[in-house]
Amino acid sequence: TTYYDVLGVKPNATQEELKKAYRKLALKYHPDKNPNEGEKFKQISQAYEVLSDAKKRELYDKGGE
């Protein structure tokens, strides 16, 4: 599973699309609303952290993490 899959976006997604997808999923899986989905929330946050940063995203796209 790639970070793009976690957020449900395509690899060519814009920053705005990433932000929108992250917010939607973060609300859905937030531990306050969904106590059993803490791990999913962490995955979503990690994916967004990497993909929202241009340098980290470039490194990730080249095969790094």
Results as ranks from 00 to 15, higher is better:
Ala13Val: 11
Gln15Arg: 08
Lys19Phe: 14
Lys10Pro: 12
Leu59Ile: 12
Asp53Pro: 01
His30Asn: 11
Lys62His: 11
Ala13Leu: 02
Arg23Phe: 14
Tyr3Cys: 06
Glu17Asn: 03
Thr1Phe: 13
Lys24Phe: 11
Leu59Phe: 09
Lys40Ala: 10
Arg23Ser: 13
Lys24Pro: 02
Lys24Gly: 08
Ala13Met: 02
Leu27Gly: 10
Tyr4Leu: 01
Thr1Leu: 14
Lys28Thr: 09
Tyr60Pro: 03
Asn12Phe: 07
Leu18Met: 07
Glu49Met: 09
Ala26Gly: 04
Lys42Pro: 03
Leu51Tyr: 00
Ser45Leu: 15
Asn12Ile: 06
Asn34Val: 07
Ala13Cys: 14
Val6Arg: 04
Lys19Cys: 13
Asp5Val: 05
Glu65Asp: 12
Lys62Gln: 13
Glu16Tyr: 08
Tyr22Gln: 01
Gln43Lys: 09
Val9Met: 04
Gly63Lys: 10
Ile44His: 00
Leu25Trp: 03
Glu49Cys: 14
Leu25Val: 03
Ala54Ser: 09
Gln15His: 10
Tyr60Met: 04
Lys55Phe: 10
Leu25Arg: 03
Lys33Gln: 12
Leu25Cys: 05
Ser45Val: 15
Lys56Trp: 07
Gly38Met: 15
Lys10Met: 12
Tyr22Ile: 02
Ser45Asn: 12
Lys56Gln: 11
Tyr29Trp: 06
Val9Ile: 07
Leu59Thr: 08
Asp5Ser: 07
Lys62Leu: 10
Gly63Gln: 14
Thr1Ser: 11
Pro35Ile: 07
Asp5Asn: 06
Ser45Thr: 15
Leu18Ser: 00
Asn12Trp: 13
Gly8Ala: 04
Asn12Leu: 06
Arg57Phe: 02
Pro11Asp: 05
Gly63Ala: 13
Asp32Lys: 10
Asn36Pro: 07
Pro31Leu: 05
Ser52Lys: 13
Gln43Glu: 14
Glu49Arg: 09
Pro11Gln: 09
Lys55Asp: 08
Asp53Lys: 04
Val6Trp: 12
Tyr60Val: 04
Asp61Tyr: 02
Lys19Gly: 08
Lys40Thr: 07
Lys55Ala: 14
Tyr22Ser: 01
Leu7Val: 01
Gln43Pro: 03
Ser45Asp: 08
Ala47Val: 03
Asp5Arg: 06
Asp5Pro: 01
Tyr60Cys: 04
Leu59Ser: 11
Lys20Met: 13
Ile44Glu: 01
Arg57Ile: 02
Pro31Thr: 07
Tyr3Leu: 12
Phe41Ser: 03
Lys42Phe: 09
Leu59Trp: 13
Phe41Leu: 08
Glu58Gln: 10
Gln46Arg: 11
Asn12Asp: 14
Asn12Val: 04
Leu27His: 09
Gln43Met: 11
Gly38Arg: 14
His30Thr: 06
Ala54Trp: 09
Leu59Cys: 11
